[in-house]
C-alpha cells in the first residue's frame, strides 16, 4: 500500500465515519475493502491528524478504546472534512463501465436505475463512458422470465441453441444465477437430465417456459471460471497456415507455438467431438495437419456427405 492510497482512503473515511456515527469496525472495513487490522491502523493515523496547531483540541478525536474494545467507531472534531473528495477520472470511468454491465444484465426498474445512476455520476464527475461495453445478453424477455423463475424457485424448460453440437435442445433446469463473464452473459442452472450444474449462454436461449414444478435447492451455483472454459480431457493439436493464425483469438487454445516456417501449432481442448468437426470444416485447407491422426476423419466424412448431397440436388459440378 502506498501513502497516496492510504491518504485517499483516510480523506474518504473521515466523512464516512461522520455520516455513520457508531459504525462497527467490521462494517467500515468491508466498506473500504480492507482488513479490520488495517482499519484500526488507519484510525491510529487519523487520530494524529487534524487542524494543525499542536493543541489537543485541534486533532480529530476518535474513541480508540471503543474501536479496539467493542469494535465501534466514534469520530468527532473533524468538521473541515465533511464531504469526500471528487472522483478521479479513472474512478469515474471504471464505475461507469460497471454500471453499463449492470444495465445490460438487468431489465425494468433496475436497468432504468443503472442508467440514471450513470447519468448522475457523469454530471457530478464530468466524465463520460470512455469504455464501451456490449454484452451478449440475449433477449430481454428471456432474462426477465429467468430472473422471475430464480426469485420464485421455479423449474423451467429452455429452448437452447447449443453451439457445441450445432442443434437445438430443450433441457429442463432449475435456474440459479445469471452471471456475466467478459461481455457474455450465462445462466448457471441445475440440469435435471445431467444431474449436474450446466452453463448456458443467454444469447442462445431462445425461449423459457415456466414449469409447474418448483425447483429444488442445489446449493450455491458455481462461479464461472476465469478465461476459457476448459474442463475437458480430449485434446488435439492443429497446425495452421500463417493466414489462419487469427484462430487463436477466437477459440479456446491451450497452447500456441509459432513455427519457424510461419505456420502455427495450436493445442485445443475438445469437450465435444462435434465442435472439432465444425472447426475443421470451417478452416478447410488452412489446416496443415491434425494430431492425433484420424481426428479429422469425421470432418472429412461430413465434407464428403455435404458434397454428395449438393450434387444430388444440383448435379455434379
Amino acid at each position: 500500500m502506498t501513502s497516496q492510497e492510504q491518504v485517499a482512503r483516510l480523506l474518504a473515511m473521515v466523512p464516512y465515519l461522520r455520516a455513520n456515527p457508531g459504525v462497527g469496525v467490521a462494517t467500515a472495513a468491508e466498506a473500504f475493502g480492507i482488513t479490520r487490522k488495517q482499519l484500526v491502523a488507519d484510525l491510529n493515523v487519523l487520530w494524529m491528524c487534524g487542524l494543525p496547531g499542536g493543541l489537543p483540541d485541534d486533532l480529530i478525536e476518535i474513541d480508540m478504546d471503543a474501536a479496539t474494545g467493542e469494535g465501534i467507531i466514534h469520530l468527532s472534531n473533524a468538521d473541515y472534512l465533511s464531504r469526500p473528495m471528487r472522483f478521479t477520472a479513472d474512478e469515474a470511468v471504471s464505475l461507469l463501465v460497471a454500471l453499463q454491465a449492470v444495465a445490460e444484465m438487468t431489465t425494468g426498474p433496475s436497468r432504468a436505475a443503472a442508467r440514471s445512476a450513470a447519468e448522475k455520476l457523469s454530471q457530478v464527475t464530468g466524465q463520460q463512458d470512455l469504455i464501451w461495453l456490449s454484452v451478449s445478453t440475449g433477449d430481454d424477455r428471456v432474462r426477465e422470465t429467468l430472473a422471475a423463475a430464480i426469485a420464485g424457485h421455479q423449474r423451467v424448460r429452455l429452448t437452447y441453441d447449443g453451439a457445441a453440437r450445432g442443434r437445438t435442445t430443450y433441457p429442463e433446469v432449475d435456474p440459479a444465477e445469471i452471471q456475466m463473464r467478459d461481455s457474455i452473459a450465462y445462466l448457471q442452472a441445475w440440469s435435471l437430465e445431467r444431474q449436474d450444474w450446466r452453463t448456458y449462454r443467454l444469447d442462445r436461449i431462445v425461449d423459457v417456459v415456466l414449469l409447474e414444478q418448483r425447483g429444488e435447492d442445489h446449493g450455491a451455483a458455481p462461479e464461472l471460471p476465469d478465461g476459457w472454459f476448459d474442463n475437458s480431457d480430449g485434446e488435439v493439436t492443429v497446425d495452421l497456415v500463417a493466414e489462419a493464425s487469427w484462430v487463436v483469438d477466437y477459440y479456446p487454445a491451450r497452447g500456441v507455438v509459432r513455427n519457424p516456417d510461419g505456420s502455427t501449432s495450436v493445442r485445443f481442448a475438445v469437450a465435444e467431438p462435434a465442435w472439432l468437426d465444425a472447426l475443421l470444416l470451417r478452416l478447410g485447407d488452412q489446416v496443415l495437419t491434425v494430431t492425433p491422426t484420424g481426428a479429422g476423419e469425421a470432418a472429412a466424412a461430413a465434407a464428403r456427405e455435404t458434397i454428395e448431397r449438393t450434387e444430388i440436388l444440383f448435379g455434379a459440378s
Binding site: R9, Y16, A19, F32, P84, M85, E91, A92, A98
Partner: peptide
C-alpha cells in the same frame, strides 16, 4: 478504482 469510488459515495 471502483472500490474507492464507492467509498466516496458511502
Amino acid at each position: 478504482q471502483t472500490r474507492q469510488a464507492l467509498a466516496k459515495l458511502r
